[in-house]
Structures are given as structure tokens and as C-alpha cells.
């Protein structure tokens, strides 16, 4: 799967409350959630980003609340991938489970600047910076997680198992 988009850069410890504030959690409709994606971090994000764009952030992205609404909002807003130095574990699990591509790469985060055009091969974890003409390599997923990703998320993976 190849993704291509412009980078939007944020800092460390971006929590799920700023990704999707609790005041919008009275619905689980992804298109409603998408309208408020990152609202308390960057109120203009939804207006300025384009479909396919990439969020690039520091360490511990998605910390705090377990709300799956956070990766759902990011995915439904049209973000194609989140690249971070590291992810909080519940957000990491949730993203794999719902099929939001995420990659860990300290190198990529250090090098990518806001506005850079990024091309990503999710399967190989290769991140190309088209603006700077550089290539970075993300941490590979463990084989088991690759299986979930290839099944199309946890539910399809589990459904295959229980309906065998």
C-alpha cells in the first residue's frame, strides 16, 4: 500500500483528549468525529489538511484515554498515516485494530519538516521525503500484527477464526 501526502508536524505526548475532545464523544459516527479531529491542539487542522496527508509527531502519540474515537477521527478526517517517535500502547493497538496506518521512526520524525511531501510504503515501512529527497526506514511490525493488518483489522481477523 503506497500513501502520499503532505506532513503536518506536532510535538510530544499528543493525548487523545486533544485529538478528539470528550465533548464530542456523545456520538461514534466517524464523519462527525472527523470534523473535530485535533481541534484542541490545532483548531485549523481539519480545514487546512487534504485527504492523504500525514501526521508527524514526537514521542508517546495518543497517550491518555482509550477512546477509539481518536484513531477513528484521524482516519475519517482523511489522514493516511501517522508517523511518530513512539505511540502510547492503547492508541497503537486501536490503530492496528481499525486499520489506521501508523509507523514508528525516530529518524523520520527528526528529518521531516512541516509541509514536506511524504510517500510511504506501509508494507515495507519505507518513508520517502520527496521534498528533501531522503528515505527513512520505520520499525517493522511483528509478524502477528502484520497478520491482523493484512486481514483488514482485528474484527475481520477474529471473524475468520470464529467462523472457521
Amino acid at each position: 500500500m503506497n500513501l502520499n501526502g503532505q506532513a503536518w508536524k506536532y510535538g510530544d505526548d499528543i493525548d487523545t483528549d486533544v485529538i478528539i475532545p470528550a465533548r464530542y464523544l456523545n456520538t461514534s459516527d466517524p464523519s462527525e468525529l472527523a470534523k473535530h479531529c485535533l481541534e484542541d491542539l490545532d483548531g485549523e487542522f481539519v480545514d487546512k489538511m487534504k485527504k492523504g496527508d500525514v501526521i508527524v509527531a514526537g514521542k508517546n502519540f495518543g497517550c491518555g484515554s482509550s477512546r477509539e474515537h481518536a484513531p477513528l477521527a484521524i482516519k475519517a478526517a482523511g489522514v493516511s498515516c501517522v508517523i511518530a517517535e513512539s505511540f502510547a500502547r492503547i492508541f497503537y493497538r486501536n490503530s492496528i485494530n481499525i486499520g489506521l496506518p501508523i509507523l514508528e521512526s525516530v529518524e523520520a520524525v527528526a528529518a521531516i519538516e512541516e509541509g514536506d511531501q511524504i510517500e510511504i510504503d506501509v508494507n515495507s515501512g519505507k518513508i520517502k521525503n520527496l521534498t528533501k529527497d531522503e528515505v527513512y526506514q520505520a520499525e517493522p511490525f511483528p509478524e502477528f500484527m502484520q497478520e491482523i493488518i493484512e486481514s483488514g483489522g482485528l474484527i475481520k481477523y477474529v471473524a475468520k477464526k470464529v467462523n472457521k
Binding site: 482509550s66 477512546r67 477509539e68 484513531p71 492503547i90 493497538r93 486501536n94 485494530n97 481499525i98 483489522g153 482485528l154 474484527i155 477474529v158 477464526k161 470464529v162
Partner: peptide, 14 residues
Amino acid sequence: TGVGSTDMAAGMAT
């Protein structure tokens, strides 16, 4: 441990 909704769904089923 805390998980998301999809893990809860799989847990309820299996």
C-alpha cells in the same frame, strides 16, 4: 489493562 472498543468487541465474542 485498558483497551479500545474493537478489542472489547473481540473479547466479548471470544
